[in-house]
């Protein structure tokens, strides 16, 4: 698909926002809450901030909600009836100002939810998304997108990618058909491209390792059996913080709520890092100790998914490392594997 490039003047960004809003879209955008920036549904353009490196949580909630009701059921005496969810109620959502790493997270999720059997809930929600990405002008040393074949200006997965230039105007790359259609429908917002080079306005993210070289190493049996995992995970507490903030972690649990009027079966986030995740009713646990669970997390992303789904299950956003209470730094550990194995 050939990419078209337009530009948006700094004072017409709110026009883009208002037009999208007036077309009935919900807009999910970064807002400042106390000392943090997080994605939330916004009503006014002024609420949005672009002054952040990373939000604590990813935006996966928009297609893989913390809780997704799978169906409802009604029990009357011995009779049981199941009721489908009304999928037409899923709203059109514009994700605004999302960084390229987070955008590419959707691709990993797609790999998981659509390989072999297709997951209707994910696909329906994904169909309703329009993604307006924003290149990164800032980064910190947790960022490692360039190590996993992405970059601060990567267009992959966005419908439109904006890059803020020196004078405050934006370069607008129309990546997908959806993005092109959007631009065509707002000719006064998307104007003739100016002569400026996107690369000049992107932050430089140091490459920590090369995923092309790392992946085959992760797939070696010696790596799996290495004492590295125990040594490097002794301090891991075994919580789910890394998985829950991760844009690509998709493990879930299925539960019922069968009390009162709300009879539903739903899925909710779960994590391979939690001890209970794999435990059998008999008490036998295939991944008994934390090092095995930490290994599973990294192997799943860098050994199993590349082989099975042809994608890397990591976008280099560093959210897990920032969220970790005990400084389990994923980039540092991957770098060590790349160097030593």
């Amino acid at each position: 698909m050939s990419m078209e490039i337009k530009s948006i003047q700094k004072d017409s960004l709110d026009k883009l926002f208002n037009s999208l809003k007036s077309r009935g879209n919900l807009i999910y955008a970064p807002v400042k809450v106390k000392n943090e920036v997080q994605f939330d549904f916004v009503e006014k353009f002024e609420q949005i901030t672009d002054d952040f490196i990373q939000t604590t949580q990813s935006v996966k909630n928009s297609v893989f909600p913390k809780i997704e009701t799978l169906f409802k059921f009604v029990k009357t005496g011995k009779e049981v009836k199941m009721l489908d969810m009304d999928m037409s109620l899923i709203p059109e959502i514009v994700i605004w100002g999302i960084h390229p790493c987070d955008v590419w997270g959707f691709d990993s999720l797609r790999a998981i939810f659509t390989w072999d059997t297709h997951d209707m809930f994910f696909e329906k929600r994904m169909d309703k998304l329009t993604i307006i990405g924003m290149s990164c002008a800032k980064a910190d040393d947790y960022c490692f997108c360039t190590s996993v074949n992405l970059g601060p200006g990567s267009t992959k997965g966005s419908d439109v990618l904006l890059t803020k230039t020196g004078n405050g105007d934006y370069i607008a790359e129309l990546v997908s058909d959806k993005g092109k259609a959007l631009a065509t429908s707002m000719p006064d917002v998307f104007v003739q491209a100016v002569q400026s080079k996107k690369e000049d306005f992107l932050v430089v993210v140091e490459k920590r390792f090369d995923s092309e070289s790392l992946i085959p190493k992760m797939q070696k049996k010696e790596t799996f059996d290495s004492p590295f995992w125990v040594t490097n995970s002794l301090r891991c507490l075994g919580c789910g913080a890394c998985a829950y903030v991760c844009p690509t972690c998709a493990c879930f649990d299925i539960q019922d709520e069968g009390y009162g009027a709300r009879n539903i079966r739903f899925r909710c986030w779960d994590s391979c890092g939690l001890k209970q995740f794999t435990i059998h009713t008999s008490g036998h646990n295939p991944r008994e100790v934390q090092s095995q669970r930490w290994r599973q997390r990294l192997m799943h992303k860098f050994a199993y998914m590349p082989e099975r789904n042809k994608v890397t299950g990591c976008v280099g956003c560093g959210k897990c490392s920032r969220a970790c209470p005990v400084d389990m730094n994923i980039a540092e550990q991957l770098q060590e594997i790349d160097q030593k194995m």
């Binding site: 919580c239 789910g240 998985a243 829950y244 986030w269 939690l274 209470p325």
Partner: peptide, 22 residues
């Protein structure tokens, strides 16, 4: 709260093999 249980896992007093939430 996303129920990641970091609070519980960080707490030295939360050493139960099976937490009540489980």
């Amino acid at each position: 709260c996303i129920k990641c249980f970091a609070c519980r896992q960080a707490c030295p007093m939360c050493y139960c093999v099976r937490c009540q939430v489980e």
